[in-house]
């Protein structure tokens, strides 16, 4: 079984800060892989590298045999990688439905002129997009919010909408940046079932960053512990949690 996502010796610096330091790991098709680590460890930066927002100084990133470094940030979605953001980046002045439909953008087949005339083909395509989005809405129980503006929605719902928008792209790999941060206990519980179902029902591979160890050990197959941009430990949730280096890093961080 060859890895779906393969990050090899990636390094990225911001000025003097080494955000990602010679980091290597692989994510296998069909698993849930979690990255944990203290704030500023470089977790989001890893996501941004995969999203191609940043160029690594050195190293290689491949997705399903494709060299990701050859792709631009807007071509990543086309390969089947979707993501959410730590600080929710939804389209505020649009409805939930419209947000999810933007997720379908990579499946756009119609041209500008056709769309201005709204030809039958555009109409057919719109219906197709809508059906795909409705599946996501049903899956995430977003029906009550379908036509609501994002700007008026509570935080917890926005988090779910962001996951929905990523799912609407029809991804093979889903990147979730702190999906449960700021959620209530019940909402976190829901998120846990969804992540399970995303993997089991939809067969989507999940790479997530999360602080909530309960959620991490509940859903993930493997965990990577990161500190100062470098790998501290990797293994099953139990292995990582009992790793002396990890305990040291966390206690050290807590004591400081």
């Amino acid at each position: 079984m060859s890895a779906l996502l393969d990050i090899r010796n990636a390094t990225l610096k911001f000025g003097g800060v080494v955000a990602v330091n010679d980091l290597s790991f692989t994510v296998e098709e069909g698993e849930v892989y979690a990255i944990v680590g203290p704030n500023g460890a470089g977790k989001s930066t890893v996501f941004n590298l995969i999203s191609r927002f940043y160029d690594p100084f050195s190293g290689a990133i491949t997705f399903d045999g494709n060299n990701l470094l050859d792709r631009k940030a807007d071509e990543v979605a086309d390969l089947g990688i979707a993501r959410t953001f730590q600080n929710i980046e939804l389209f505020e002045h649009a409805t939930v439905l419209q947000n999810l439909l933007v997720g379908r953008h990579r499946h756009r087949r119609t041209t500008l002129v056709e769309e201005m005339l709204f030809t039958p083909r555009v109409r057919r395509e719109e219906k197709r997009h809508r059906e795909a989005v409705e599946e996501v809405i049903d899956f995430l129980d977003l029906q009550p919010y379908r036509n609501k503006m994002i700007a008026g929605l509570p935080y917890g719902v926005r988090k779910v909408v962001e996951v929905g928008r990523a799912l609407a792209t029809g991804p093979r790999l889903l990147l979730l940046d702190e999906p449960a941060s700021g959620l209530s206990v019940e909402e976190t519980q829901d998120m846990r079932w969804w992540i399970d179902d995303i993997r089991k029902q939809m067969g989507i591979t999940v790479l997530m960053v999360e602080h909530d160890m309960g959620l991490v050990s509940g859903v993930s197959d493997r965990v990577l512990a990161l500190a100062d941009g470098a790998k501290l430990a990797e293994g099953t949730p139990a292995e990582v949690q009992s790793d002396p280096a990890v305990i040291e890093a966390y206690l050290g961080a807590g004591a400081a």
């Binding site: 927002f53 807007d74 071509e75 086309d78 939804l90 389209f91 002045h93 649009a94 990579r106």
Partner: peptide, 15 residues
């Protein structure tokens, strides 16, 4: 509208 509201996430959606 996506570009208007958030360029980063529009990019991540393939826009």
């Amino acid at each position: 509208a996506a570009v208007r509201d958030s360029e980063v996430s529009a990019t991540a959606m393939g826009v």
